[in-house]
């Protein structure tokens, strides 16, 4: 098994793990958004979807396990690499300049860490119900947990919505470099496909930002409102 240790210890091996786990996390973000967008189909659709997830705990927990492992691996290896990178240049330049690198590529660790702190808040808010316990206990007319109302109530608070909006934009920034870049780390870079590879990050990021922002914005603008009976 020494080859595993050697590969994981190498910078390229570590980057490879960051890229692979990145794919898992991107997959989750896409699935998560698609699921949530059902909010536009109405209370019944969204709550039904949530109920379905909860009724298949095996699937839910195995997905969560992969996700949690990926999450920690992604962050852990990135922090390790970033520390190495800092050590690799002990004396910085007096004149700081970059030639062409977009800001997103130079700030991955910051956008990533900010997204991380948001994820913690997000879990406390919706998954664990710590920040707004009163929203967590809502049930709909069919006795299902009322996820729909929980989301709408949450986003009706301007500060909650704003924090989501900022976080989603940061996530977009992170992915616009991250997604284009992971191809390179996995060894996929070819002139024939580079147009697509280069576009993949920004396109995906824009899609995710648009999709995710549509929800708080729709709530704030009143396109989505509470069903009758929920106060």
């Amino acid at each position: 098994m020494s080859w595993v240790r050697k590969t994981v210890a190498s910078t390229i091996g570590a980057k490879f793990i960051v890229a692979l786990t990145g794919i898992v996390l991107v997959g989750f973000v896409i699935g998560h958004m698609l699921g949530n967008l059902q909010i536009f189909l109405g209370q019944d659709a969204l709550n039904n979807y949530a109920q379905m997830l909860h009724n298949t705990p095996a699937l839910l927990w195995s997905a969560r396990l992969v996700l949690i492992l990926s999450f920690f691996a992604h962050i852990g290896f990135t922090i390790k690499l970033t520390r190495q990178n800092r050590l690799a240049r002990p004396q910085t330049y007096a004149y700081q300049q970059s030639i062409q690198a977009p800001t997103s590529s130079r700030t991955m660790i910051f956008s990533g860490l900010l997204v991380l702190s948001f994820v913690i808040y997000h879990l406390l808010h919706f998954t664990l119900g710590v920040t707004h316990p009163e929203h967590k206990s809502l049930v709909d007319s069919m006795g299902r947990p009322d996820v729909y109302s929980m989301v709408v109530l949450g986003f009706q608070n301007i500060w909650v919505s704003l924090s989501y909006i900022v976080a989603i934009i940061l996530l977009g920034l992170h992915l616009s470099h991250g997604v284009s870049s992971l191809w390179q780390t996995l060894g996929l870079n070819h002139v024939k496909y580079n147009t697509f590879i280069k576009a993949s990050g920004p396109v995906l990021a824009l899609t995710l930002v648009a999709g995710n922002l549509s929800m708080p914005v729709a709530v704030l603008l009143g396109f989505l409102s509470l069903p009758l009976g929920v106060v």
């Binding site: 570590a14 690499l81 970059s98 030639i99 690198a101 590529s105 991955m108 470099h177 390179q184």
Partner: peptide
Amino acid sequence: GSCTNTFECEAACPKEISVTNIAQMNR
């Protein structure tokens, strides 16, 4: 340090060596 795919290297290279070589090395 390690590569974060900023591609500053390619831009600075006086011989304009392409970062496709890095992808090949990763592979």
